[in-house]
């Protein structure tokens, strides 16, 4: 996967980094096998996407999901996307709304992965260039505090993870 790393400058005047890659829903076929020592096989992540952050742009837009081999917020230079998902025109504008997602073909491994999802709520991502997709001011995003959500995918088959868009980029 030719995932171009990009970063976006956000909170606290601080740079967060997201190697934000949407891959039009299909997972990468050539995901790196670097340190996937333990298990073999492919797995998927499924669940719902909800929104708890107060949206400033309507909460109606495309959602990009990316699973990384390490936390992209902490190590921008080396984070690699191992699976990606895309939800076109998701509507999370009403309280309690949710949409289902699935990210397929994630290599199984014992150590946790890190996931970032964002909604292009201000509608300025160039959909024809998903490799360069990344959130900017006004977009909704899923974070664990100031770091990424982690998830373990240590056996083949489906794994559950619900995603909450709990943050708005200032």
């Amino acid at each position: 996967m030719s995932c171009v790393k990009r970063f976006f400058s956000v909170v606290l005047g601080t740079s967060f980094l997201l190697a934000g890659c949407g891959d039009d829903g299909a997972a990468s076929s050539d995901a790196p096998m670097g340190d996937m020592s333990v298990a073999s096989g492919r797995a998927s992540l499924t669940g719902s996407v909800t929104r708890s952050a107060m949206a400033t742009e309507g909460a109606d837009g495309d959602i990009y999901i990316a699973v990384f081999d390490r936390d992209p917020v902490l190590d921008m230079a080396n984070a690699v996307v191992v699976g990606a998902g895309f939800l076109e025109d998701a509507d999370l504008s009403t309280d309690g709304a949710m949409v289902a997602y699935e990210v397929d073909d994630i290599p199984v491994r014992a150590e946790p992965y890190f996931l970032i999802a964002f909604m292009d709520d201000n509608d300025n991502v160039d959909a024809s260039d998903p490799d360069n997709a990344g959130p900017d001011s006004g977009d909704l995003l899923s974070l664990r505090g100031l770091a990424s959500v982690s998830v373990t995918v240590d056996a083949p088959g489906p794994h559950e993870l619900d995603i909450d868009l709990n943050s708005v980029l200032p």
Binding site: V11, G13, S15, L17, L74
Partner: peptide, 17 residues
Amino acid sequence: AIAESGETDLPVGQMQT
């Protein structure tokens, strides 16, 4: 460094971890 010296490139998420 972030608060006083304006070093905004530092990864604040790493400080959390």
